[in-house]
Design a binder for these strands. Structure first.
Lengths: 157, 157
DNA sequence: GATAATTGTTTACTTGGTTAACAGTCTGGC
DNA sequence: GCCAGACTGTTAACCAAGTAAACAATTATC
């Protein structure tokens, strides 16, 4: 078998989906996430929110006066990593840091009116992006997928 | 409602799984992937392969003489990003770059005997890590999940 | 033969995280 | 009341994993 014949086991061919990696959940999660994430960024555009910023704003809107520690825990990231995100949202006028009576270490995060409006708009865009991107799947499939992903996430608790 | 009463809508409470983010596929994919990835790294340990290196070795073993461009395409990454990965595998004696007769630009990647052995060991570890991590899910659930993730990945083609 | 495309590499850069350390603050046990 | 330990948000440094651009060499196409 020459080198050219070996390459005729063309890794780009249709049954490329039979290698070991195709049976690994982690690998497939990563590849699927890359697709969703790239389209998210494309949809929201340059001036829009990065996924992690959108997530943070989402929770700040839904949990008024959430603290940074709580938010970091909910998002599954380190507190230090949240600083730049909150700075960004604060600088854009979407979030304010408020002192908390009774505990001078803590700041409560509150979305501004502009922040809520921006969030609603972004949320609609994000939902539309997912709906369109996944339109080749049935709503039932999407629900099943979410359920299974949540099942994985039970490990977090 | 005081600030303390607001915070009694405890974001850490059991029904935290009802916010907007919980219905987004992208967000859940990311969170699930972080879990799988962290456990992968824990399982293979410091001297083991990072997920992306494991993935590359996997395909090199299964597609002997694959070129770097083909490999990059299959993994969904840029050619330049693959150089460091292949360098690492080559340096550890797991992979060799071979000239291809007839096309002097191309190098065919071939796993060495050591590389194949290391891969088989790692593959077994990876499979065991997933089996254990996902043991709270039925095999059918895992199969369904893989199917749905593959459905998402159809977008890639 | 000229031009466009491809290959693998190098370099610079970006993004999204983690870690460690810190000052300030709070908590709980003695 | 005191104090050690824990917590808060921040800063700076670092890391991993990727992308983009440029390039020399090579191949493909007209």
């Amino acid at each position: 078998m020459t080198i050219r014949q070996k390459l005729s086991m063309d890794p780009q061919a249709a049954d490329v989906r039979t290698n070991d990696l195709e049976d690994l959940v982690g690998y497939n999660l990563k590849r699927a996430y890359v697709i969703l994430s790239a389209d998210f960024k494309r949809t929201l555009g340059e001036d829009g929110f990065a996924p992690r910023v959108f997530s943070a704003l989402s929770l700040i809107v839904q949990y008024p006066d959430i603290t940074q520690s709580e938010l970091a825990r909910m998002l599954g990231i380190e507190r230090s990593g949240l600083v730049a995100i909150v700075d960004q949202l604060e600088q854009r006028g979407f979030v304010q840091r408020n002192a908390v009576p009774g505990d001078r270490r803590v700041q409560a995060l509150m979305a501004t009116g502009d922040g809520c409006a921006a969030y609603e708009q972004a949320r609609a865009s994000v939902e539309a992006h997912e709906e369109k991107l996944l339109s080749h799947m049935t709503p039932r499939d999407v629900e099943t997928l979410l359920g299974l992903l949540r099942k994985i996430r039970e490990i977090e608790e």
